[in-house]
Amino acid sequence: MISIILLAALGKFSFIVAFVGYLVVFFALVLLVIIFTNIPKLYHIQIRKKLRRKGKYIDRPEGCCMAISGETNAAIGLALFLYFNELHDHENMVMTIDKVSRRYSPWSSKIYGLTNYNFNRK
């Protein structure tokens, strides 16, 4: 009943715009979903082919290998980063002094220093 009243009030045009519009939005995104669900599969097939050709690919039965999730990888990455970042705090405490031998220069001489002048302090 409500739909009949609405249809009478709005006219066919509005419903067509709304219905077709929504359908097109869905269609566009469904196409993207289909494409991007299949791209990784195609990509992996390509990589497998390449590796097989080079003799590096070994067919493994499903579930035999450890699958590490992105979250776990991120946690491992963060832990490594923090570990290496903090490394400098654990340096050995032995200090060494390198003796630097320089040739004499009047520019760095202590006897010509400003403090050695005998100023008249009276």
Partner: peptide
């Protein structure tokens, strides 16, 4: 996870229902 894209499409229902509401 491309199938989550459909949720973005579904939520656009707001646009078209509001369009009808504004016409009313």
């Amino acid at each position: 996870n491309p199938k989550l894209m459909l949720l973005g499409a579904a939520a656009q229902v707001g646009i078209f229902l509001t369009f009808l509401g504004a016409m009313v």
